[in-house]
């Protein structure tokens, strides 16, 4: 991926900014250009909540090059407090700690993958809520 392509997605990666259809209210993450539900092009920025529950997960043992340092890692579906579901890595957990329904919150982490010239990718992951 080009550095600029990565840069364009910074708000969604850093702050979980998706968008919402002004006509029908449907929320999208990642943000969309057109609402697939009603066809409207009037979409407004929408900040997703940063907390949610883990709905389903899998443990990844075979991953693309560069991710060896992360394996085994967890990919899960997180249902956020407003009901929107996102796909994300669950971090700071041992495989055996992961439970469905566990409370998680967004955290910015770096990907093992680097862009041209060593540019570092930062993105949201979710980790257990720290009480």
């Amino acid at each position: 991926m080009a550095t600029s392509a990565y840069w364009r997605t910074r708000f969604q990666r850093y702050r979980l900014i998706g968008n919402r259809c002004k006509e029908c209210g449907k929320v999208f993450f990642p943000p969309r250009f057109v609402c697939p539900a009603c066809g409207s092009v009037k979409l407004e920025e929408y900040k997703l909540p940063e907390r949610g529950k883990l709905v389903e997960y899998t443990v990844v043992y075979t991953a693309p090059k560069g991710y060896e340092v992360m394996t085994p890692y967890v990919i899960g579906i997180v249902e956020l407090e407003d009901g929107v579901r996102v796909l994300a890595q669950i971090t700071d957990v041992d495989v055996e700690d992961v439970k469905e329904g566990m409370e998680v919150e967004a955290s910015i982490r770096r990907l093992p993958e680097q862009l041209e010239g060593g540019m570092i990718c930062y993105t949201y992951k979710f980790r257990p809520v720290i009480k």
Binding site: T91, S107, I108, R109, R110, P112, I120, Y122, K125
Partner: peptide, 13 residues
């Protein structure tokens, strides 16, 4: 620091 952490990620947290 975990494999996905660095000074930037810790600072943000």
């Amino acid at each position: 620091a975990g494999p996905d952490e660095d000074a930037v990620t810790i600072a943000i947290e």
